[in-house]
Simulated assay, not measured.
Amino acid sequence: MRVEIWSDIACPWCYVGKARFEKGLEAFAHRADVEVVHRSFELDPNRAKGDVEQVVDMLAKKYGRTPEQARAMEETVAANAHAEGLGYRTEGRDNGSTFDIHRVLHLAKARGLQSELLDLAYRANFAEETSVFDDEVLVGLAVRAGLDEAETRAVLADPAAYADDVRADEREAAELGANGVPFFVFDRRYGVSGGQPAEVFTQALEQAWQSRGPLTPLAASESADGATCDADGNCA
């Protein structure tokens, strides 16, 4: 069985949702027979490379909140992250274009190292005092994940490298009706939206496993809703 997960490295609920999904998968009896594929989704596809700002400032402007209110929003997500055993910094984090990160994640996928790089990138973005929107940081993370440094630099230097793969993932998300992330698709049969509790993911896995057979279109009625970040970058 295949589970496809659309997410963005800038999405806090994707970070939390990945941890919850993995706990749900661990409780699934047939977990050894599940293939997990991570797919690209940009929350802010129009943001230019190099346009980087602090997350709290971004939230205050986007939602028309005071800096204090924006920090409170971050504290809410942090509490959820900490409950899953994840680190989360509410101050000093950057927000920027994730297109290059997705391109390097596709390189990692081609080399069988996608999950390793995704974990490192999430941790760097949400828990560590570093910026994943810096090319040198991204190269360092890629090397730590097992990628070749020269190959990673070549991808970053060529804006076309893996760009079609990122765009294809995003088109497919739109075709499936995903307007926010994280978005989980189980055998192209059931959709689960948002950072749901682990038991919801276990239930979805069991339901998809029991109904294996000819693929049918993913229906809106088969999608559960949870905390997401939408296509406009709004997280709730």
Rank of each mutant, 00 (worst) to 15 (best):
S7R: 04
D8H: 08
I9A: 10
A10F: 03
P12W: 00
P12H: 01
C14G: 11
C14H: 04
K18F: 04
A19M: 05
F21P: 01
E26I: 04
F28A: 12
A29H: 10
R31W: 03
R31N: 10
V34N: 08
E35V: 12
E35H: 10
S40V: 01
P45V: 10
V55K: 09
V55L: 14
V56H: 13
K61A: 15
T66F: 14
M73Y: 11
E74W: 05
T76M: 06
A81Y: 01
A81M: 03
H82C: 01
A83H: 06
A83N: 07
L86C: 05
L86V: 02
D94H: 15
N95F: 11
V104Q: 03
V104K: 03
H106W: 00
L113E: 02
Q114R: 12
S115F: 03
E116H: 11
E116N: 03
D119N: 05
Y122C: 00
Y122Q: 02
A127L: 06
T130H: 03
S131Q: 08
F133P: 08
D135R: 11
D135K: 08
L138N: 09
V139L: 13
A142I: 06
A150L: 06
E151S: 08
A154C: 07
V155A: 04
V155F: 07
L156M: 09
A163D: 04
D169S: 10
D169R: 03
D169T: 12
E175M: 09
G180T: 04
G180H: 05
V181H: 03
F183Q: 02
F184G: 06
V185L: 14
F186C: 08
G191S: 12
Q196G: 05
E199K: 09
V200G: 00
E206A: 14
S211N: 15
R212I: 12
P214G: 00
L218I: 15
A219S: 13
A220D: 13
A227P: 12
T228S: 05
D232A: 14
